[in-house]
Simulated assay, not measured.
Amino acid sequence: MLRNDTESYGLLAILFHWIIAAIFMGQILLGYLMVRTSDFALQFSLFQWHKSFGFLILVLSGVRLLWRMANPRPRDIAGMSRMERSAAHLTHGVLYLALFLIPLTGWALASSSPLQIPTFAFNLIVIPPLPLTISDQAEAFWTASHAWLAYISSLVAAAHMSAALHHHFWKKDAVLRRMLSWHSRARTAAQKDTRS
C-alpha cells in the first residue's frame, strides 16, 4: 500500500501531498504576518521560521518528485472530459514547478539582500547563501519574483482545491477520495474477491 497503482495513490504519495500542502498554506499565512509586525525580535523569528519551512518544502518536493518518477501515475478518473484532464495536468505541473521556484527565489532573496542575515534552518544548521550579486536592486527583483510566484501559485492552488471539491460533491467521483485514503484499493480488491 506504500506505492501507487494504476487506480489509486499509495500511502507515501498521499502523505507527501497533504504534508506539503499544509506547509505551503502555513507559509502563505506566515509570509503575510511576518511583514506586518513592528516587533523586530518577533519579525526576525518569523522570517527564520518562514525560511526554514521553505527549505523543508524544497527538500520534500525533491523527494516527492523522485518518488513520483519511481511510481506509476494513477489513470485519470473515467468520465473526465478532455478539457478537465488538460486543466488538471496543467494545474499539477504549475504547482509542482511552484514548489521548487518559490523556495529557490526566497533563497535568492536572502542571498542577495545587503543585510546578509544568516538563515538558521530550524535553529539547527546555517544555510549558506547562493553566489548571487548583493545589492538593493537584486533584492528588489527577487522579492518581487518570490511574492508574485506565491500569489499566482496560491490562486492556482485555490482553483485546484475548488476543482477537487467540485468533483467530490457535485460529480461524486473518486478524484478527491483517492487522495484521502489508500484503503480504497484494498476495499476494491476485497469486493472483487467477494464477488468471485
Score class of each variant (00 low, 15 high):
residue 91 T to M: 13
residue 154 S to R: 03
residue 44 F to L: 13
residue 134 I to L: 06
residue 38 S to F: 04
residue 122 F to D: 00
residue 126 V to W: 03
residue 143 T to N: 11
residue 134 I to M: 07
residue 128 P to W: 00
residue 140 A to T: 12
residue 60 L to Y: 08
residue 45 S to K: 11
residue 50 H to I: 07
residue 90 L to F: 12
residue 39 D to M: 05
residue 115 L to G: 02
residue 123 N to T: 09
residue 47 F to R: 05
residue 121 A to V: 15
residue 58 L to W: 15
residue 65 L to P: 06
residue 121 A to G: 04
residue 40 F to W: 02
residue 144 A to D: 14
residue 67 W to E: 10
residue 65 L to S: 13
residue 114 P to T: 06
residue 49 W to M: 09
residue 53 F to V: 03
residue 91 T to Q: 14
residue 68 R to V: 03
residue 57 I to T: 10
residue 57 I to N: 04
residue 130 L to Q: 06
residue 96 Y to D: 07
residue 82 R to K: 13
residue 92 H to F: 14
residue 99 L to T: 09
residue 84 E to A: 13
residue 88 A to W: 05
residue 130 L to T: 07
residue 156 V to Y: 12
residue 66 L to F: 08
residue 57 I to P: 02
residue 96 Y to C: 08
residue 57 I to L: 04
residue 132 L to Q: 07
residue 131 P to H: 04
residue 60 L to R: 05
residue 130 L to W: 03
residue 103 P to N: 01
residue 68 R to M: 14
residue 105 T to N: 09
residue 115 L to Q: 11
residue 141 F to N: 09
residue 96 Y to M: 14
residue 43 Q to M: 15
residue 157 A to L: 15
residue 153 S to V: 05
residue 105 T to W: 04
residue 127 I to E: 03
residue 109 L to T: 00
residue 157 A to D: 00
residue 140 A to F: 10
residue 121 A to Q: 07
